[in-house]
């Protein structure tokens, strides 16, 4: 683990990724201390300062009701990251279990489980989340649910493909020969060999979940105001282009930087583990 970290820090690109994500994490965790106007995360109005271009003390300007954009971006990061962690926290165990079972048992189990996975994967990602979101009330919890529903099949497919490969390896056959239980073989023998790929994918996915969640809220199907959210900030600001450009550009760049950072680290991990998609 420490060695991996040292390798990541020695490559300029992954170092950049670590720095970007480090800053974002610190901002998100200590938002209350870092945000210059913490109360602006909520439904505050300050009409004296509304719609101002970036200038001190409003680094990114203010929105149409006078809230500090920089503070809102920081709080939006916090919510996006929580969402990402929760989604992965549910999607990964579910997907991995489905993939392991389908790959290891084969035959009818495999057919049934993988066709279900196919069904989920054959609705374009955003469309599936949209329709779930449309049916449910747009809250943070439901947003997590919708994104989770579209995310687990990718892990199922990844682990399924790897399990099918690993199943034929000598160490699995050896474990079976000495009479290890199926559960043992699946979770203690096969699964650890999938870890590098899973961890790499999780890193990349944290970025992509932020991307998808912001897309949902951009369409008005995500977190509702006054909760700060990068996607809805862009959507609201886009109506005032090009004059109030800061309203869209800063939240847009905020999304770009976060996803870019996770991608840089994910790429470096992939190279490190030599893991393929």
């Amino acid at each position: 683990m420490r060695r991996a970290f040292a390798i990541l820090a020695s490559n300029p690109l992954s170092l950049l990724g670590l720095i970007l994500i480090g800053i974002i994490l610190i901002c998100a965790i200590f938002a209350d201390f870092i945000a210059p106007f913490p109360e602006h995360r909520g439904a505050v109005v300050d009409f004296a300062n509304f719609n101002q271009a970036p200038k001190w003390p409003h680094l990114m300007g203010t929105d149409l009701v006078g809230r500090d954009l920089f503070s809102r971006v920081i709080y939006a990061y916090r919510i996006s990251l929580i969402l990402g962690v929760v989604v992965l926290g549910i999607a990964v165990p579910v997907g991995v279990t489905v993939g392991l079972i389908a790959g290891y048992f084969g035959r009818y189990t495999e057919f049934a489980l993988m066709r279900v996975t196919d069904v989920f994967l054959s609705i374009p990602p955003l469309v599936l989340a949209m329709s779930i979101m449309g049916v449910l009330e747009p809250t943070l919890i439901n947003g997590m649910l919708a994104v989770t529903a579209m995310w687990w099949p990718w892990y199922a497919r990844l682990v399924y493909n790897m399990t099918r490969g690993e199943k034929e390896e000598g160490y699995v056959l050896a474990a079976e020969l000495i009479g290890a239980s199926r559960l043992h073989v699946m979770f203690r023998e096969v699964l650890p060999n999938c870890f590098p790929s899973i961890v790499t994918k999780m890193t990349l996915d944290l970025g992509f979940i932020i991307l998808i969640a912001s897309s949902l809220s951009f369409l008005g199907l995500g977190v509702q105001p006054p909760t700060p959210d990068l996607g809805s900030m862009v959507a609201d600001g886009a109506k005032y282009l090009p004059d109030s450009w800061w309203l869209t550009i800063f939240p847009s760049l905020a999304i770009l930087i976060a996803v870019f950072g996770f991608n840089l680290i994910g790429d470096a991990l992939r190279e490190l583990f030599g893991a393929d998609q």
């Binding site: 991307l211 996607g231 999304i255 770009l256």
Partner: peptide
């Protein structure tokens, strides 16, 4: 290119 949603 892959690091931003298409609306951005």
């Amino acid at each position: 290119g892959v690091s931003a949603p298409s609306f951005v």
